[in-house]
Amino acid sequence: MAMTGVLRPGHVALRVLDLEQAVHHYTEVVGLAEVMRDAQGRVFFKAWDEADHHSVVLRKADEAGMDYMGWRVDSDATLDRLAGELEASPLATEISWIDAGEHPHTGRRFRFTIPTGHVMELYAHRDVTGCATGYLNPEPWPDDLRGMAPSRFDHCLLYGDDLDGTVELFTKILGFNLAEQVVAGPDRLQIAAFLSCSNKAHDVAFIRQPMKNKFHHCSFLLGSWNEVLKAADIISKKKVSLDLGPTRHGITRGETIYFFDPSGNRNEVFSGGYIWYPDKPTITWTDDQLGPAIFYHDRKLNEAFLSVVT
């Protein structure tokens, strides 16, 4: 079956403490393109291979963290159907419709809060302004890339309390699949869920922690392990706050490095992983093997990685 319903992560909206420092980070370090600023002072960005108008939104605020994450669905009919199902479910709260145009070049968005406290949106339309290489006889990559230059915004990892409710919402209503999970203790309590709506090992992941609406990281895709190593060079060259890496995850098999934006929001750039199909069995990790599950090379947990969130 071709991909239908929820197609992919479409946008992430982050709060930053200093807008110009953040713009410098997301353009010169991460290597996104600034596409516009709106009357509210929000700044919109996209990665070089993304077709749509924008994928990352920043606004100045007095707290760091994530405002919301948006999901592109395949049609207006799907948007209406999923909105109806979410409205009828006790798992989705604080439901609202956001008018078309509130995000530039974007249709109406259906906004709701999931059981872990995160705000999610669905939308069916965003203007295609095109990727940097175009669609007719394109070159493999554009000239004049800056920084790490990922090809796309890829996923988020989020922390919250009611993991069961959020996983139920994403799987039963939005049609996601559980690609990987971490279970803990004799009761095999699920403490992490890696959810896919596509052929990726994860489009969003959640970790059970006793707080609501926390942001662990947003991630961007690079083309190779060598590009991850170059990202490490850029982190040192630009004196960016390094979290950890370069290393490999056992979970999802991604080759990765983590760092922080100037407001403390964690970013990841990664490559690799695997193609996930709906008939692939769920991979399960147990908490006694959490070291190599998260950091395959040194096989040890890292408290800063696990506990620093915004």
């Binding site: 309390d161 803990a184 059970r208 922690q209 006793p210 908490d287 959490l290 408290e303 800063a304 696990l306």
Partner: peptide, 25 residues
């Protein structure tokens, strides 16, 4: 202080000084 996100020695699941009884639907 740094949270102890996954303190296996303290039971299945543990965060800061919060007892190992995570909210569970």
């Amino acid at each position: 202080k740094m949270a102890r996100s996954f303190d296996i020695s303290r039971g299945a699941f543990h965060f800061y000084g919060v007892p190992a009884t995570a909210p569970h639907r």
